[in-house]
Every structure is written in C-alpha cells, then in structure tokens.
Amino acid sequence: MDQSISLNKFISDTGYCSRREADNLITQGRVLLNDRPAALGNRYKPGDTVEVDGSLITAAKKEKRVYLALNKPPGITTTTELHIKDNIISFVNYPQRIFPIGRLDKDSEGLIFLTNDGDIINKILRAANNHEKEYVVRVNKPINPAFVQQMSQGVPILDTRTLPCKVQMMGRQTFRITLTQGLNRQIRRMCEYLGYTVVGLQRVRIMNVRLDKLPLGKWRHLSEAEISFLKESVADSSKVRSEDNPSAPRKKAPARTPAKDHPKTAFTPETKPSPHKHKTTKPPAKDSKPRTGKPTEKPGKRENAVQKPSQSRRGKPSSPPKNAGKRRRG
C-alpha cells in the first residue's frame, strides 16, 4: 500500500509552516528531498529526508495540534515574517510554531485563528466551502436602506463583483455584514465604491466561533467542541486536490474571468443575428459569415462570384460569332 503523501503536506504536518508556505519554499529552491532540490508535486514516503534552509525536517518533530483564537488589535500585521514590525507571530509569542488562518487588515481588529494544523488552514481558506465570517463595521456618515441593499446584492470591485451577502443596519453609521469570500480589503473597498469610508472594522465571528467577551489583544485555546465542529464543517473540502495538485488553486482564479466575459459575449452577437435569421433564409447565411471574424474576405468572394457568372455570360455571346465565323469559313 502506498504510504506516500505530498511533500507540502508532510512539511505542514510537522508544524513548520502551512501548505501554501511550503509550496513557496519549494518553488524558491529552499527545500531538499533526499539531497536533491524538491519540486511541486513531489511526494514524501517513510525513510525520505527533507531539509528546509539546511535544517532537517522529520516526522518525529510533529507537535500536538494547537488551535488559538486571538482578538487582534489594530496595528498588528497578519504575517509570519518575523522581521516585519508588529507581526502577529511575535505579538502572540506562543512557544510553538504557529501561523494565522487567513488575514485581517492591519487597521482592523477582531477574531482570527492561529494554528499549526496545515490541513485545516487550507480547508477553511477555500472560498468554495462558503465559510461565514461576520463583521461589525462603522463608517464615516449615516447609512440608509439603499446602502444596505446595494451592499447585500454585491458591489463591483477588483475587476469582479462581490457575492451576495447578509447586511443588517445596527445604527446610523454602523452595520453588520456576513461574508463567504475574502477579497483583499473587501469591506473597505465595497464601502468606498458607494462613497463611504470605513472608520472601524471588527470581525466578531468565524464559522461557529464567536469573539464574545475575549479582551482586545488576548487569545484563548479553542474548545474541543469548537474544534470538532470546525473539522466537521471542512470535512467535505476538496483535500485531495490541494495535496496532489499544487496548481489546483490557480484553476479557480481564471474561473472568475470567464464569468465577466460571458455577459459581454452574449450581449451583442446573440441579439443581432437572431432578427436577421427570421427575415429570410439566404441573407442570414450571408450576413452570418462576416460575423465569424472574416468580414472583408468573404464579401469579396461574393463579388468575384458575381463577376464570374457575368464573365461567363459575356463569354457565351462572344462564342456565337466565333461559331458563326467557322460556319462562314465552312
């Protein structure tokens, strides 16, 4: 029985980093598999040696799973790069190697998970899983029902349109919003598009875990019930795709572009040809040909086609005198 696993999963399971970070390390040439530079898609099997930046990584170093909930204060950057000032890892200062699940803007505050479980990170981050994240937002001026409706229906940002979401007015300048996607600075960009500026943003819930009364800047361990629910919620995630196909996430990005092009391509070509087709049978065949991308060549061919019979007709009247000439000679 094959006991091998993907290399990025092995590195993640040791608690060294997440799978995505492991893929980055591999592409940067910082990972050796059996003394040879590793490549995306490589698999680890018992007995193999794995080195990252010259340090041996073994399954024996695998640590107990850690799941933390932090009430991140504003000013803390969600990154594992320790050289960056006010990074979240140094702020928490946990004795084991952990990394955040997702991001929370530096200017924002509220709930964020940290763990050394690479499997659950990938599953939670997958947008296809539609995991809810709830925020309380305060803007710079009063909001109205029209604002709530526009936000809930989706707003065009970052060359796409945000998915429909739940929005509830809480006060003159405060609203609650629940998202199932995580575009870069999504809420701030949505508000800016509608002419508002976010002056305060707090994430209060991720899936089944709520911020509740956790003080700002403090963290706690997730309860067994919370962990169990999280794992059950992501159990149906496409785990195999991320393990065996590191490029699988890239297939999702191009999927957004066709969605934008569909309305454009379906707008003019389909509406214009249809009325012509109903008028006659022959003309639409001629009209439809130029729309295939060769508008100049085929009309030219038609002209030639018209000229050829005219030449042949002219040729026929010229032939009788020739025949007549032959008769005179005879």
Rank of each mutant, 00 (worst) to 15 (best):
P320Y: 10
T80P: 04
A266M: 03
P73F: 08
T162A: 07
L216C: 07
I206W: 01
I157E: 04
P100D: 04
L111S: 04
L33S: 05
L211C: 06
N144G: 11
N140F: 14
K279R: 12
L111N: 03
L104E: 03
G325V: 10
P317L: 13
G118R: 03
P273F: 00
E51P: 09
F10H: 13
G330Y: 11
K286Y: 02
T79M: 09
T296A: 02
T115K: 07
D86R: 15
R328N: 13
K9D: 01
D117Q: 12
A59M: 15
K316A: 13
Y193F: 11
V52E: 11
R203G: 02
R172M: 11
S312M: 13
I76T: 07
D53Q: 05
Q3E: 15
K286G: 02
D48S: 14
P74H: 11
V198E: 07
K61L: 14
Q186D: 05
Q186Y: 05
T160P: 02
F267S: 01
K289N: 03
D23Q: 03
N116L: 11
S238L: 12
R328I: 09
T78W: 09
Q96I: 13
K213R: 13
G75K: 11
A253Y: 11
G154A: 02
T197W: 08
N208K: 03
I124R: 00
I206P: 00
P254T: 14
K264H: 05
V209F: 03
D105A: 06
M170Y: 07
Q96A: 14
I76V: 14
L222I: 08
N129H: 09
C17I: 02
H221G: 10
E303N: 07
E51Q: 15
P263D: 01
